[in-house]
Design a protein around this nucleic acid. Structure first.
Length: 124
DNA sequence: GCTATGACAAGGA
DNA sequence: CTCCTTGCCATAG
């Protein structure tokens, strides 16, 4: 298991119940911007130990296609946490977006440049 | 080390 | 809003 993989799982595990994050957001916080695709790949493999359903794409859509992790299952998980999902699998991501607080981010030992980007993009 | 692949992102049509 | 194209980058083989 690579460093990046561990980081991704760590980050996903920090996503609070009832909130969601985009793949890009997770990859950035995990230390590698634009590795969103890999995040999806990792969740596909290690999803059993992480709240994978709290990660969706930036367009606010559920994009899993795989059989075991079907979109309807993800929808079910989210609605169980009070996150509304339309019949078309659309979510108001900005409304439920996880906005990590600076103190929490420091524990992840994120590089200065990325930390700043995270705060600018996803924090208040 | 090189190519193909993908639960993505962003911008244009 | 939806569909398509490009850019991305860690893994697998």
């Amino acid at each position: 298991m690579s460093k990046f993989t561990e980081k991704v799982l760590e980050v996903v595990n920090k996503i609070p119940k009832g909130t969601v994050a985009s793949y890009g957001q997770v990859s950035l916080i995990a230390g590698i911007p634009r590795a969103a695709l890999q995040v999806g790949w990792i969740l596909h493999q290690y999803g059993e130990t992480t709240p994978w359903w709290r990660v969706i794409n930036n367009a606010g859509r559920i994009s899993t296609k795989c059989i075991e992790h079907h979109a309807s299952l993800q929808k079910k998980h989210l609605e169980a946490e009070n996150v509304k999902v339309t019949p078309k699998l659309k979510i108001d991501i900005e409304k439920y977006r996880w906005r990590p607080n600076p103190n929490e981010l420091k524990k992840l030992k994120l590089d200065e440049k990325y930390l700043e980007e995270v705060l600018n993009t996803y924090s208040l």
